[in-house]
Design a protein around this nucleic acid. Structure first.
Lengths: 339, 339
DNA sequence: TTGAAAGCGCTAACAA
DNA sequence: TTGTTAGCGCTTTCAA
């Protein structure tokens, strides 16, 4: 096995010092002769020299790496969210290290440590099972800035605001306009703050119209298609005229269960989701939902964390600016007007 | 900003040399007194010492990193595939660096170089636009083993075999058994070898039954839901009794178009997909398809590349063992018997 | 049972 | 315009 070309090899071959090569290749070539510069650059190509990442990082203390913790890649929302992070990171020459924790606390913890070990410069954490205090303590100790997205009950305000309260209220008003007052809500177990706000907005809007939604109208289940499917009987049994699923995956699971129960959407029952994953347009009937800008959220998260990294603001809970992103109610075919 | 704890800090505090600390922390503690060992280990916890990744790699020349190139995360097949890689890699303490190239050749190339720069020990490439010769040359030069999955026309046999020819044939026979001979195939542009084999198996099976499927019965489009949707009119216009979509995304796009055209599945037209993404069970009617073990494929890919890395087999095209994975025809509700 | 010293590949003061 | 030297944090001979 031929060894990798090092800067010393290159320097020798060029008949200059390693400093010269290093400087030139790093763009600090002001003080060198054109001749030397060209010689070095040509040789770099010829020899296929690529600077050693580890050696560089050992000195610079930054590998331009962002650790990313998400619950799962199989939820399209997070797949797109991750894509957004990657897009934005790329512009600044950062690389995301994406870990899916599957809501497994231990795994999540391992991946957190692995990110630190791999010298992540910052972290984006969007995995809901986290113990926020623990994360804050370990990350602060290591002086790694981080942002929490869509996080478990936490003192910290989400730095990326996507108007969940308003979103929930929009769904409520949409349903109200269409005459629905007999409602079931389907939510994921251990709802995150974002989803709680969404729920709160929804319930408050109903209350404003004189309709109280009690806790037993909320069904909790695993936050997935299967979770929605599993509780569809229960949801249907309550004989609502409309169901609000706190995300689209849930809604699509409900679709299946509702149809298997012999009911039609929206004739027998209306369904509204949340997220507007691309699949929402491909189910029958097309799903009414609230558009969340998943891609933009990923981009915003990456932008924010890079800002913090480069500003040296190793901020924990208190720090940093916020980004607000718009949401939008998308009316499609899954809600019917009743009277 | 407090500095990160280094091995020197720890050694000083323990009153021993860095060698001692290094040896003990790396499990080579045979020759040290229990007392020293305990002291060092305790101090590690206390001080929160984490060895510097870059410094370690600089010496060991391996960062236990696998570069992964996929077309996109938004296709659930690849999301699951990536999850499989991560699962398996984790067991061996490798970390995948996942890059989605979106079929953009330039991006793909950038990510390839970035993986090399970041000292990937091996690569899994599953992005169909690649220029295989180029990849082989650059990776070989850098002595990085790699495996190509589901790759563009290539001399190399896929190291992970998922019986595409047989899969295609199974779909064909299924359709044949149900009386379908008027067929349209919907495929992605620039089909990969795997998909070609799938197609070939399909066509050969029909031919065996005396039915020739001509090239103009194949419609090419973007390999996505939208791609399927976009050509649905064209597909319907050919008045087939059944459509074979080479993947589920395409099939689900077709579903939408077919319904919008006022036709019913499977009464007016039967549809079969390929992949068995989890969504296949959640569309109406449930999609008949061929189950591809995406998760297992990811695991197998990771296993294979780790084997090559650790065996020092920096193999390019010729090398390495193969893994065969079973597929399965899943009959659901999207095919109807006709006569 | 322990430590001194060299060196991994690179960057950056400081000289020349 | 270029080179010498030190040193990043760690592992690993080799010696004590």
């Amino acid at each position: 096995m031929t060894k990798k070309v090092t800067i010393t090899d290159l320097a020798k071959k060029a008949g200059v010092s390693v400093t010269t090569v290093s400087q030139i290749l790093n763009g600090k070539d002001a003080r060198f002769s054109t001749k030397t510069i060209e010689k070095v650059k040509a040789l770099q190509k010829d020899m296929g020299y690529i600077p050693d990442f580890n050696a560089q990082n050992l000195i610079s203390k930054t590998g331009k790496t962002i650790g990313v913790l998400i619950p799962s890649l199989s939820n399209p929302f997070f797949a797109i969210f991750s894509a957004g992070i990657q897009n934005e990171a790329r512009k600044e020459e950062y690389v995301p290290l994406v870990f899916a924790s599957n809501n497994d606390r231990e795994l999540e913890n391992q991946y957190l440590l692995e990110s630190i070990r791999r010298a992540a410069d910052g972290m984006i954490i969007s995995s809901p099972v986290s113990d926020v205090d623990y994360i804050d303590s370990i990350l602060s100790q290591n002086h790694i800035p981080y942002i929490l997205i869509d996080q478990a009950p936490s003192a910290q305000e989400d730095p990326i605001d996507v108007a969940n309260y308003e979103g929930g209220a929009k769904v409520a008003n949409y349903l109200l306009e269409n005459g629905h007052t007999r409602i079931v809500i389907v939510a994921g177990d251990d709802p995150t703050v974002n989803i709680r706000k969404r729920l709160q907005g929804f319930r408050d809007a109903f209350k404003d119209h004189g309709v109280t939604i009690s806790d037993n109208q909320i069904i909790y289940t695993h936050l997935s298609k299967k979770g929605g499917y599993d509780v569809s009987n229960k949801a249907v049994a309550a004989k609502p005229t409309a169901i609000f699923a706190v995300n689209d995956e849930l809604a699509i699971g409900l679709y299946r269960g509702i149809k298997e129960a012999g009911l039609r959407i929206p004739d027998d029952i209306s369904v509204v989701g949340y997220d507007d994953i691309d699949w929402a347009k491909y189910v029958d009937p097309k799903l009414s939902t609230v558009h969340q800008p998943a891609l933009e959220m990923g981009q915003a998260a990456a932008k924010l964390i890079i800002e913090r990294i480069e500003s040296g603001n190793n901020g924990s809970l208190e720090s940093g600016r916020k980004i607000s992103l718009p949401i939008q109610l998308i009316k499609r075919g899954s809600v019917k007007k009743i009277n």
